[in-house]
C-alpha cells in the first residue's frame, strides 16, 4: 500500500500536499505515547495517533515513519503542519477514531509493525 491508497482507505485529508505519496507502507502502529512509538515501531509504518503536537512529526522522523494519520478529524496546530512540510512526511487527518482505523487498516492487510520491547544491545557501564 502506498500513501495515496492509505488516504483513500481512511477517507483522509492530506494536510501537507507536497508530501511524498509514493512511499510504501509496510504496516501500522496506533499509539499516543511517543516513547512507545520510538521503542517499538518498525521503519516504514503508518502511525495512527490522537496527538497533534509537533513531537508527533519529530517522533515519526526519528523512527522513519512513512505517514501519520491524526484520528477523529482533529486539526493539528500550524507548527505541526509546518514541521510535516519541512520533513516531507505525509500528515493526514481522518474522521475515524483510532479503533476504527486499526480495524480498517488491519482488514486491508496491514500488519502490526511493532515489536515487543526486549532488552537492547546496550550494556550498562
Amino acid at each position: 500500500m502506498d500513501v495515496s491508497q492509505l488516504i483513500d482507505l481512511v477517507s483522509g485529508e492530506l494536510l501537507n500536499p507536497d508530501a511524498d505519496l509514493t512511499r510504501d507502507i509496510k504496516g501500522g502502529c496506533g499509539a499516543d505515547l511517543m516513547s512507545d512509538v520510538l521503542a517499538s515501531i518498525q521503519p516504514e509504518a503508518v502511525l495512527l495517533t490522537g496527538l497533534c503536537n509537533p513531537q508527533v512529526i519529530r517522533t515519526a522522523q526519528m523512527s522513519d515513519v512513512s505517514a501519520i494519520v491524526i484520528v477523529r478529524g482533529k486539526n493539528p496546530p500550524q507548527e505541526t503542519v509546518n514541521l510535516a512540510k519541512e520533513e516531507k512526511i505525509a500528515l493526514i487527518s481522518s474522521p475515524f477514531g483510532m479503533f476504527e482505523l486499526c480495524g480498517r487498516l488491519y482488514q486491508a492487510g496491514l500488519a502490526s509493525l511493532e515489536q515487543p520491547v526486549t532488552d537492547g544491545p546496550s550494556e550498562m557501564e
Partner: peptide, 11 residues
C-alpha cells in the same frame, strides 16, 4: 529503556 536499546553502551 528506549535509549538502552538503541546504544551500545550507556552510563
Amino acid at each position: 529503556v528506549n535509549i538502552a536499546r538503541c546504544v551500545d553502551s550507556m552510563k
